Amino acid sequence: MNDKVKYEIEFPIMSSPQLLYQYISTPSGLSEWFADNVNSRGEDFTFIWDDSEEKAKLVSKKTGEKVKFRWYDEEGAETEYFFEIKIMVDEITKDVSIVVVDFAEDDELDEAKLLWENQISDLKHVLGSM
């Protein structure tokens, strides 16, 4: 398996950090834009898309600021790969943006970024923040 590369992308978003946090940290919020369905049992989350299912552990969260999920492999062991969603607020303008940190294989980097653009577009639609 190829090693994946870490990347970070930022998206401006018109929303309050408090509302945004509900959409990035709860199964019901995540299932509205990130996956078709999201279930959780404690810190373990299951993300379901069509006929595929991925499991991740919520490894850290800071209310109103960020969440970080670490992926499990097929055997149920934690991997080194994670995705993190951070809410950033500009201190001067109060503009809100989301910063996504994720991993992708080198030859799939553009595709991975495009996927996040589509996901965040769905989030903006749910928030009424087009």
Score class of each variant (00 low, 15 high):
residue 35 A to W: 07
residue 35 A to L: 06
residue 36 D to P: 04
residue 36 D to T: 08
residue 37 N to F: 10
residue 38 V to M: 03
residue 38 V to N: 05
residue 38 V to A: 04
residue 39 N to A: 12
residue 40 S to F: 01
residue 40 S to K: 12
residue 40 S to L: 01
residue 40 S to G: 02
residue 41 R to G: 11
residue 42 G to W: 02
residue 42 G to H: 03
residue 43 E to M: 09
residue 43 E to F: 09
residue 44 D to K: 14
residue 44 D to Q: 12
residue 44 D to P: 01
residue 45 F to K: 02
residue 47 F to V: 02
residue 49 W to N: 14
residue 49 W to V: 07
residue 49 W to Y: 09
residue 50 D to S: 12
residue 51 D to A: 10
residue 52 S to Q: 13
residue 52 S to I: 14
residue 52 S to T: 15
residue 53 E to A: 08
residue 53 E to T: 14
residue 54 E to A: 10
residue 54 E to K: 12
residue 54 E to L: 09
residue 55 K to Y: 04
residue 55 K to S: 12
residue 56 A to Q: 09
residue 57 K to Y: 08
residue 57 K to S: 12
residue 57 K to F: 06
residue 58 L to G: 10
residue 59 V to C: 09
residue 59 V to Y: 06
residue 59 V to D: 12
residue 60 S to W: 01
residue 60 S to R: 09
residue 61 K to Y: 13
residue 61 K to P: 06
residue 63 T to N: 10
residue 64 G to D: 06
residue 64 G to H: 03
residue 65 E to H: 05
residue 66 K to N: 09
residue 66 K to H: 09
residue 66 K to W: 06
residue 67 V to Y: 00
residue 68 K to V: 13
residue 68 K to D: 05
residue 69 F to R: 05
residue 69 F to Q: 04
residue 69 F to Y: 13
residue 71 W to M: 14
residue 71 W to E: 08
residue 74 E to K: 07
residue 75 E to Q: 15
residue 75 E to N: 14
residue 75 E to W: 11
residue 75 E to D: 15
residue 76 G to F: 03
residue 76 G to K: 11
residue 78 E to D: 12
residue 78 E to I: 07
residue 78 E to K: 10
residue 79 T to R: 11
residue 80 E to A: 11
residue 80 E to G: 11
residue 81 Y to L: 10
residue 81 Y to V: 05
residue 81 Y to A: 08
residue 83 F to I: 02
residue 83 F to D: 08
residue 85 I to A: 10
residue 85 I to L: 15
residue 85 I to P: 04
residue 87 I to M: 01
residue 88 M to G: 04
residue 88 M to Q: 09
residue 88 M to P: 01
residue 89 V to N: 00
residue 91 E to K: 09
residue 91 E to S: 13
residue 92 I to Y: 06
residue 92 I to G: 03
residue 92 I to F: 09
residue 92 I to H: 08
residue 92 I to T: 13
residue 93 T to V: 05
residue 93 T to L: 07
residue 93 T to K: 05
residue 94 K to M: 03
residue 94 K to H: 04
residue 94 K to Q: 08
residue 95 D to G: 06
residue 95 D to M: 07
residue 96 V to G: 05
residue 96 V to I: 03
residue 97 S to N: 04
residue 97 S to W: 00
residue 98 I to W: 00
residue 98 I to E: 00
residue 100 V to G: 01
residue 100 V to K: 00
residue 101 V to K: 06
residue 101 V to G: 06
residue 102 D to V: 00
residue 102 D to I: 00
residue 103 F to K: 02
residue 104 A to N: 01
residue 105 E to V: 05
residue 105 E to K: 11
residue 105 E to T: 10
residue 107 D to N: 14
residue 107 D to F: 07
residue 107 D to V: 01
residue 109 L to Y: 02
residue 110 D to G: 09
residue 110 D to E: 15
residue 110 D to L: 13
